[in-house]
Each structure stands twice: as C-alpha cells, then as structure tokens.
Design a protein around this nucleic acid. Structure first.
Lengths: 206, 206, 206, 206
DNA sequence: GATGAATGAGCTTTCATTCAT
DNA sequence: AATGAATGAAAGCTCATTCAT
C-alpha cells in the first residue's frame, strides 16, 4: 500500500521471477505487476540483473539481521541452532508468497563475468559476504556446540552446516513445487519443522 | 572420440549449460563446443529445451538403471540405502565433468507451459516418471527399513528421503562451486561419502 | 507526413510487398522504408503475415465501403455495374502507387494453416467475408439486371462476375507490369475504362 | 512410372509448389515426393528457382507447340480463336492435377534481379519469349479477324486478348480454389467452356 | 519523477545448397 | 549416379534498455 516505489518493484520482481523464472521474466511484466511504467524500473535499478541481486542481498541481510538479534539473547549453542532454523521457517512460511524466496536464491548467484558495472560488482560482493556471514554464523555455533560437547563431532562444522542447510532448502523447495507446480511431494508445511527438529536432534549429544 | 554426433552434442550441451547456465547458453556455443554447425544441432534436437530435457532424461534413466541392477542383488534395506547413494557418488564423482550434472538437473524442470511440442511434452512426462521412480525407490526402501525396525520411524519416508537427497545434492553443489566457481566451501570430495555415511547412520536403529 | 506509425508501416509494406513480392520482402526492409526500427513493426503487427492480411482487409473494406455509398444512390442495375468498376479504377489508378494493391491482393489468401494465432485467424475470416461481400454485391446486381431484362441471361451471375472481375484484374496487372517491370503490354491506363465499358456493354441487352 | 528422374522431379515440384506455394515448398519435400534424395535434385537443376522457371518454360512451350500444330490446320480466325482456348482447357482440365499449372504460372515471373546465373537468365528470357509468342499468336489472330470483319473492332487486339486471357485465367483459378481450398465459387468445370464461348461470341461480328 | 514508444543487439530457427562417401 | 549429413547465411522475433516528452 504505502510502499515506496522501490519496494513495489522488488515485490513485483519476487513474484514474477519466482513464477516465470529469471530468464523468462520481463521487465514489462514486473512493471505491470508493480503498477508502474517500464521506464521507471530503471530509475531505481540499473538493469534486470540488479533486481535479482537486490532481492538476494535483501534476503540475506534480512536473515542475518534477524539472526544477530535473536542469537544475542541466547547462550546455548543448541538453542541457537534451533533458533536459526526457526528464523528461516518464519521467513519462508510467513505467507504463501514467501516461498518465492527459495526460488530466487537459487537463481541468485550469476556468473561473475555477467556482472559488469562497478556498482553491481559491489552488490554481488555484498551478497557473497552476507552469505559467508550466514555460513560462518552456523559454523561457529556448531563448532562451539562441538567444543562444549553438545553436538556430535564426527563431522566438521562445514559438513554439518551443509546437512542442515541442504535439508532445509530441499524441504522448502518441495513445498514450493507443491504449491505452485501442483506436484505431489508427500508431506506438507507442518512437517518441515518436525523434520528439521528430528534431524538436528540426531546430532545433539545431549 | 568415436562418439556419435548426438552424443557429442549432448556432451557439449552439458558443459555449456553447466558453465553458462541454461539461459545464457546459446546453440551457437554448444555447436562450437561440439565441433559442428548450428544447423546440425537442429537435426538431432528440436530446440534448446529439447537438449535440456534430453540431458535430464538421460541422467534419471542412467541412475534408475544402475540402481535397479544394484538393488536386485541386495536384500537388506540399509545396505540398499547405502548402495543408492554410492551410485549417485559414482556418477557425479566419476570425473570432473560429471559434476556438471548436478547443475543441469536443477535447471531441468521447466515451467510446463514452456514445453510446446507434443514430442517434448512426452519427454517431459518421461522425466517426471523417472524422477518419481527414483523417489519411489528411495521411499520404498526407507519404508521397508522402518517396517523391519532397521530405520528410525520418527519421520515418514518422504521426509527422510528429502533429508538424504537434499543433503546429497547440496554437498555436491558445494563441490561444484569449489571446482568451477572458485568458492571456498570448507570440505572436499572425500568428505562427501563420510558425511553421507554419518547422516545415514544417525537414522539406522541398528 | 502526419501519418500514424501504423499507417507508415502499412504504406511501406504495400510498397515493399509489391516490389519484392511478399516472400522476398523482409521486415527489416519494410522498417527501413517506413523510417523506423524493426522492433517497432512488431508492436503494431504480430508478424509479416499480419501485415499482408491487414493490407488485404483494408483494401476490401475500402472497396466495400465506397461501393455501398455509391450504390445507395443508384437505382439502375446497369448503372450500378458501371459504378462498381469505376470504384475499382478510382482506387487503383488514384496514383502510381495504388497499382501495388493489385499485386498484394493476389498474394493475400495464404494457406489457412499458415495462419496460426487466433487474432490472425479472425483477420483472415474478415477478409473472406469482405471478399464474399464484394462478390455478392456484383452477383446481386447482375442477377437483378438479368431479372429486369437489362443484362444478358446466357450466363449465370457468378460467371459474368468472373468475366468482368477477371478482365478488370488482368488489365490492371498488365499496367502494373508496364510501370514497374518495364514490360510492354500494348495498351495503357486510358484503355482500361474503354475496354471495361466495351466488355460490359456486350452483355447489356438494352 | 517409366518417367525419367528429371520428369519425376518436375512433377513433384508442380504438386508441391501448387500446394504449398513456391516459398513454402522445400526441396526436401519435392525430393521426397519424387522418391529421390535432396542432393539429386541438384544434379538436374541449378536451384529451387530453376525448378520454377523450368516448369513455366515447359508450360508455355507445351501450349505454343500444341497451338502451332492446331492452327496450321485452321484457316478461319474465329475458329482459330476457339481452338486456342480449347487448348488451354485441354491442358488445364486434363486431370485434377493439371489445375496446379495455373498457380505455378502466377508465381513464375520472379524479379529479374533474383535470377543470377547466366543459364537461368537465358531460361527466363526464353519464358518471356514463349509468353510473348503466345500473346502475339492471339493478337495476330484477333487482328486478322478484325481485318476480315469477323471480330469486333471497338478494341485493339491487345485489349481483347487481355479480356479473353484474363477471363480464362480467373475462371480456372476459381476452379482451383474450389478443388484445393474448399472455397465456393458458384460454378464448375463444365461452365468454363460455356462462359468462354459466350464471351468470345460477343465479339464475333458474324 | 514518470511514461511508454522506440531502438537494435542478439538469439533461435529454417532450409537451400554442398560434398564426402 | 545417388545419398543425406552437414553447412551457414539469412530472416524472424524478443525484450532489455533508452530517451523525448
């Protein structure tokens, strides 16, 4: 409603990118969805790629900000880990549209050579940093949990992080396919926290 | 070498799709990579989408064929599960190029409405069937393992399958990013079987 | 001059179609002739075929509208017949460029299966209707003339219409060949009304 | 059956050109229709245009040869005129396929600049000559008929020739549309000689 | 800021034509 | 002579991007 033009455009872009895929999304359609003219998109964003990068950056920043806030109030690494994935759930299951994010993130790491302007290169770097930050947050929590004997030490943090993260991603992707592509996946949204909890608990030693 | 033209084209397509991404891949470049003219691509394939679908179909068929062969000789569900993921490893770690597959599969489920010709629609259906077949294979093994008390029954087979499959996918994707995009992921190819084994064992009750 | 872009494009298309023939005409050349870019042609017309159909529709509509207006003020069938062919002359001999029309109409009934989009199918139907309307107008006048004993009844209206129409067409086509292909046909524009009059009079009984 | 390859190709070309139109006819289809390989077409003809020109040349030569033979045995100009159009009918109504000719002749005068090779230029010249020969034959007969007081002298031979020829052409074209495009024209093959006779008689003074 | 008409580069795709076999 | 796989030029068409208004 009272959204700024920029926000309107980004919201329209999330939707169109997720529904059509980045390559088949057209600026014209994004503009139509946002209720503005094509030209105006270019007053707020350099080009189509900028939209994609901006969305990704936004997502990771959002996740990291929420995480920092939450984690500051939690001492136990295991509790932190649960909090982390709850953030993810909160964002992606906030409403039906939120699931779009998953699709966009998957498209969101374009070949570096496709990013030409200096400004966009910086934006891309920021995305990488935010992403690393997120990974590091998880790795650190896991490492601390292991040090404190609360998390299984068979695997190094980076591998545990992939297990937790990969599971999370694919569970949400399945949900997306069910909602937007009418595919049958055999579980639904309530199952996701259950599965994540069960998975995490397997690696908690006490 | 003695590859048929069709195979040459498909191999070139794997490479170019994986390196540039489907959307940025051009028929011209695939043809160049295959050492033939653009026109010839069209005598073997309807269009670019046909290439993508053909690759996907090939992959799933290959996986299913190998799985059927292996599984026929194994009785124990747990052993079957391990065998299954070993197949995946064997295919994707067979040589450096094999990792490309992972990227292609992720691109391989285009919006149904983009598939226009009858022939391609059939190809797409086949892919869906092969994919379902693969999922069903896993689900059935897990279900049997649970029935026999060998696999944890906290989660239903479809969720365990997502956990195992998702982890597998993301582990290989990390490797791909490390090899072809120079990203640091913090583990390497030897770690993948280790991680998968550790993960699977968590859900094996005895 | 103050022509709309759409009109400019159509005029350019008449010229290029007539000079090169529909099949050898390229959108690029039509755009160049119209003084615009190729892309813009596509914001006004679906494709090349749309241009051809639009021109044909325009021609038949123009002829029918002029005819209706004229015929309303004439009672005598014979006078009507003369008026009809005068319309044709007025349009085709209006200026040198008008002769192009004749060529375009001959190209204008493409194989139905080449017309794919719904919109173009409708356009094609309209052309058929306008064409039928024109033929019916002639047939009706001839039939009435015959009923009133003013036109020879040896041949049925449809055949007389073909005689009059065919003669008309070929006379103009000869003129076109003379003007634009430097062929010698042995008569010129003043001869056409003479010939048509002589022909019509042969079939007028009194 | 025992046709030479060349004849087989030309017959296939008549059919495909007439059914698809020159521009949409492909050499591949003509070859398939002729029961030979695409490559072989090029042993007998320079290129696609050569096929079209060859067919046209053939048609006009055939008409002229038959005409010369017939006319040599007729003294009366009016009888000659009737004989002339009977030839045309005999050729075009010989069998259903013969009607194809009409379509091909209409496509058969390509822009001179499209004819590049010397050999084809010569072929095109020959077509022009044969065509002129045909026109001249008619014009001469008409002129003689007029001199002898047997044909109406209101119009000069060239105009009468257009009237007779144009009517003839359009009558056959209507038949073609009826047979191959399912259009209703309001008359059928038996009507054509009737119409031509009625037309010619109008211009015969006694 | 806002529009959307206009541009044109770049891609897919077709098919006449060639040529090794 | 005969094949048909292979070529590649040429055209249609799309859509990100620009810019006059």
């Amino acid at each position: 409603m009272g959204d700024s033009k920029k926000t309107k455009i980004l919201n329209a872009a999330i939707k169109v990118f997720a529904e059509k895929g980045y390559q088949y999304a057209t600026i014209a359609e994004i503009a139509r969805e946002a209720g503005i003219s094509t030209g105006l998109v270019y007053s707020y964003f350099e080009n189509k790629l900028d939209l994609l990068l901006s969305l990704n950056l936004r997502f990771f920043q959002m996740v990291n900000v929420i995480n920092q806030k939450k984690l500051a109030q939690i001492a136990d690494p295991v509790a932190k880990l649960f909090a982390l994935f709850r953030t993810y759930h909160e964002i992606l299951l906030h409403d039906k549209k939120s699931l779009y994010w998953g699709t966009i993130i998957r498209e969101g790491f374009p070949q570096p050579h496709l990013v030409k302007s200096k400004k966009l290169k910086q934006k891309q770097s920021k995305i990488y940093e935010e992403n690393k930050q997120l990974l590091k947050t998880i790795d650190d929590i896991v490492a601390e949990g292991q040090r404190r004997g609360k998390i299984d030490t068979t695997l190094k943090p980076q591998l545990l992080r992939q297990i937790f993260g990969g599971t999370s991603q694919i569970l949400f992707n399945g949900l997306f396919l069910q909602y937007y592509r009418q595919e049958k996946i055999g579980y639904d949204r309530e199952d996701i926290p259950k599965a994540m909890t069960a998975l995490l608990e397997k690696f908690i030693t006490r």
